[in-house]
Design a binder for these strands. Structure first.
Length: 275
DNA sequence: CTTGTACCCTGACCGC
DNA sequence: TGCGGTCAGGGTACAA
C-alpha cells in the first residue's frame, strides 16, 4: 500500500534502530515471501550473521545494506508492515507473521503481511544496480526538474495517470498521490502523457513534489492498512482532496468527485476543475 | 518498443 | 447470518 512518503517514513523509523546491528537469526513463515524463487534456507543462510550498515529507500523499495557487500530488498506492496521490539506484537494487530529477523541487541524486526504480495529478496550489488537502472528518477531531489519530468513523459500515449504510476518513468508515485497531484495541477487524468503543455508539465512537476513532501511531513496516509513502524499512523488522509472521495464535493468547485478505472485501478478527479 | 490485462493473496464491506 | 461480488497506497508476466 505504501507509496514514496510511507516507505520513506518507515525507512526513517528503521535506519537509526537497525544501523550497526547484526542479524542473528532468521525465521520465514511463508516461502512466497521470499521473492525471486530463492528458498527460505538459502535466504536465511545468506543474511544470517551479517551486520546491517544502514537502510536506504529507492522508489518504493527498502534496501538493507549488509556487510560487507549484500543487499536485502524489501517490497511492502499492499500490506507489508514492520514491528521492532523485544516481544512479538499483539496478534490482534499483527495477525500474519511473515519474516522475523532477530538482532544482536535482543530485539526482533517482525515483518507481517496480510496479503503476502510483498516480501524480501537478497541481491548482489551488480544485480541491484541492473534493476535500479530501470527505475525512473526520484522526484524529491533538486536534480528532478520539470524538464526531467518532461523527458520522461515525452511521446507517451498512455494516460498521464498511468504514466505517473509507471515506476520506469518516475519513482515512488502510487495510486493516491497520482490522483492528488493531477487534481492539484488541474490536469485531466485521461490526457495522453505526451500531450501536456509546458505550463501543465511545470504545474504537475511542482504538485507531484509538493504532495509527496507534504505527505512525508504527515508520516504518510493511513487509509486502511498502512502503518509506520510499530503501528504508528500517518495523518495525510485528512488532507486528501479527491482520493476515495467520489461523490463528495470537490473542495474547489463543489461538484461531486468522479471515480473512473484506469489500468485496473481507481482514479479520482473533478471533471470541472481538471481539463 | 509501448500499452493494457490478469494475477498473486486475504479481508472488509455492501446488497440481497 | 450467510453468500457473492467488488475493492484495496503494488509489481510483474505476458499478450497484443
Amino acid at each position: 500500500m505504501p507509496e514514496l512518503p510511507e516507505v520513506e517514513t518507515i525507512r526513517r523509523d528503521l535506519d537509526p534502530e537497525l544501523r550497526g546491528r547484526s542479524i542473528e537469526r532468521v525465521r520465514v513463515y511463508h516461502d512466497d515471501l521470499i521473492l525471486g524463487g530463492m528458498n527460505r534456507r538459502t535466504f536465511s543462510g545468506r543474511i544470517r550473521d551479517r551486520r546491517i550498515l544502514g537502510v536506504r529507500r529507492r522508489a518504493k523499495y527498502l534496501l538493507f545494506d549488509l556487510a560487507p557487500d549484500l543487499i536485502v530488498r524489501v517490497q511492502l506492496r499492499m500490506s507489508g508492515r514492520f514491528w521492532l521490539g523485544s516481544r512479538r506484537p499483539d496478534p490482534q494487530e499483527f495477525r500474519h507473521p511473515g519474516i522475523d529477523l532477530r538482532l544482536d541487541d535482543g530485539r526482533t524486526l517482525f515483518y507481517d503481511d496480510t496479503r503476502r504480495l510483498g516480501g524480501f529478496d537478497v541481491l548482489e550489488p551488480e544485480t541491484w544496480a541492473a534493476a535500479e537502472s530501470r527505475i525512473g528518477p526520484e522526484p524529491l531531489p533538486r536534480a528532478f526538474t520539470w524538464r526531467v519530468l518532461a523527458d520522461r513523459l515525452e511521446g507517451a500515449r498512455a494516460p498521464i495517470k498511468n504514466a505517473l504510476l509507471d515506476q520506469r518513468r518516475l519513482a515512488g508515485v502510487g495510486n493516491i498521490y497520482a490522483s492528488e497531484a493531477l487534481y492539484r495541477s488541474g490536469i485531466d487524468p485521461r490526457r495522453a502523457a505526451g500531450s501536456l503543455s509546458e505550463s501543465e508539465l511545470r504545474r504537475l512537476h511542482r504538485e507531484v513534489r509538493a504532495v509527496l513532501r507534504e505527505a512525508l511531513r504527515s508520516a504518510g496516509t493511513t487509509f486502511q492498512n498502512y502503518r509506520a513502524v510499530n503501528g504508528r499512523s500517518g495523518s495525510f488522509q485528512t488532507r486528501l482532496h479527491v482520493y476515495a472521495r467520489d461523490g463528495s464535493p470537490c473542495p474547489r468547485c463543489g461538484r461531486p468527485v468522479t471515480r473512473i478505472i484506469q489500468a485496473g485501478r481507481s482514479t479520482f478527479f473533478c471533471e470541472t476543475c481538471q481539463s
